[in-house]
Amino acid sequence: MNNFNYLRADDTEHAVALIGKETNSRFLAGGTNLIDRWKYNLTHPDTLIDLANIEELHQITETENGGLRLGAMAGNADTAYHPLVKKRYPLLKNTILAGASAQIRNAATNGGNLMQRTRCYYYYDHESPCNKRNPGSGCPATEGHNRLHAVIGHSENCIATHPSDMCIALAALDAVVQVTGAEGNRSIPFTEFHRLPGNNPSKDNTLRPGELITSIDLPAEGFAENYSYLKLRDRNSYAFALVSVATGLRLKDSKIEKANIAVGGIAHKPWRVQEAEDFLKNKRPDRDNFAQAAEIIMDGAEGFEHNAFKIPLTKRAIIRNGMMALNPQETQRPGAGPSR
């Protein structure tokens, strides 16, 4: 809620230069999360560097390898409704549309979506201890209200979850995050972009200081034939996921040739388990096999006072979503609700 300077970057080099020069500065994209956290007294930038004028970051373009490049400043809604996304990545479309509200999706950007921070009650209360906000102050969630919290991959320092829907699909789609910084450009596989809390929960991702996300690149394969996003939450729309699952299947001769499954709402990052996907290879896409995959995915899960229910619920959601992916035209619902 402090005052700040407001600057506009002309291009990515300018943005990177500004963030290096201006102390305690942040990039401003759609602002739907940053401004909210600033108003809650959780972040106190001295300077905001608005990326809105950087034309190239707004583009959605096809890549040479048959994939799609989603500009970091392209809007979430514009992305979901982009003809190529609708046609080739319907999983991404449905997942984006299951997040937040239409107004927020209009303002929020693809890069910003990756940068969302947790909805943990204690993180959001600036007067509360929180290792993410104030390292070393403690984590009241482990002993407090932890219904929203992680059941897997958590540490004693932090049991927060990553709140994004879109990122769950991006993880399932094997997207790659392109970043630029003072030391040049690099690519980060999506599953390595977000990190687990470990001993350093203040760090949500693997970006280096001053680095700017320029795009998120989708590979050619979009699972447009067999896909599903299922989101379970406390109301039918406009609520963060308690559990969500993004599934993309490549089927051949009624068997699974490739299965990509990412789970949201249960961990500090989109949760993908290679062994489970390997297990499903060459298996029939049926309840039993999805159930076994679910067991592998949730191996090692450990709940807390209010969220232990998420463990069985996630397993059921993985199974249901696998089945929904077999028949996407009939099972997909607005808001990614369960099939009927």
Binding site: Y6, L28, G31, T32, I35, D36, L48, D50, A52, A77, A102, Q103, I104, N106, A107
Partner: peptide, 13 residues
Amino acid sequence: GKRILSCLTLAVA
């Protein structure tokens, strides 16, 4: 042309 939330938007932006 797009509906947005004015509370999460800076006027200067």
